[in-house]
């Protein structure tokens, strides 16, 4: 009996106050809708910020690439050949000997002997002590031109020169080799100064660009009668 009365009470309550209850339910539903839509708006906003940043990075990379391409004017392969010749990826003793011979020829100062100085050499640097003979002017030309003329980058940390007794002068030269490692995410921007420097070096260094030998025909006519 008591249960029946309660059910009837609830029925009457609902019948009399259905609009109020509906209002309350609608408010709750709208609040839930607003919060979920705001949540998805916030997520989308974060994604948009990340995407915008990515697009900016890509745009900068693309613009830098276009600028660099216009600056190098398709000479980049030649510049890279020169740089690889100056500082090879790994040490090549033939190019060291060739460089010394080339410098001798171009300067007139004949290098007669060379010794590797192991105590001053490292993985990236080979230190060589050279002795040579020639006139005073030839030796001075050698001192002015050793840096790039041989096709290798050569430095000398200290030079002792005696104009009176220069024939016994020994010069310590350094040759370098280092592998290129890719470690930057941002593409570097080149400058006119970079290109001018390479052009200056290009004047001093002669790099021969060999054509692709596979272009030559491999087949030839054979003769039945060799005479």
């Amino acid at each position: 009996m008591k249960n029946l009365i309660n059910i009837r009470k609830i029925k009457f309550f609902l019948r009399d106050y259905w609009s109020t209850i509906l209002t309350l339910v609608s408010i709750v539903v709208i609040i839930l809708l607003v919060s979920s839509s705001y949540k998805s708006f916030k997520e989308l906003s974060n994604q948009q910020a990340i995407l915008k940043e990515e697009v900016n990075l890509l745009k900068n990379r693309s613009d830098t690439l276009k600028f660099n391409k216009s600056l190098t004017e398709d000479q980049i392969i030649i510049y890279n050949k020169i740089l690889t010749s100056l500082i090879p990826e790994s040490e090549d003793y033939f190019s060291v000997i060739y460089a010394l011979e080339t410098i001798s020829q171009k300067t007139g100062f004949s290098i007669t002997s060379y010794t590797i100085n192991l105590s001053k050499s490292s993985r990236e640097k080979m230190s060589i002590i050279i002795e040579g003979r020639g006139s005073l002017s030839a030796f001075l030309i050698f001192l002015r031109n050793y840096e790039y003329t041989g096709g290798r980058l050569i430095t000398s940390e200290k030079i002792e020169f005696s104009g009176v007794n220069f024939t016994n002068t020994k010069v310590s030269l350094n040759f370098y080799s280092k592998k290129f490692t890719f470690n930057e995410s941002v593409i570097p921007q080149l400058s006119k100064k970079d290109i001018e420097k390479l052009e200056q070096i290009k004047q001093k260094v002669q790099i021969t660009l060999k054509e692709d030998e596979s272009d030559t025909p491999q087949e030839y006519e054979t003769k039945d009668n060799p005479f």
Binding site: L83, I87, E184, P188, L190, K197
Partner: peptide, 10 residues
């Protein structure tokens, strides 16, 4: 270009 810049830095 990356190779050029890397070698030039060296």
């Amino acid at each position: 270009i990356r190779f050029f810049k890397g070698k030039q830095t060296q």
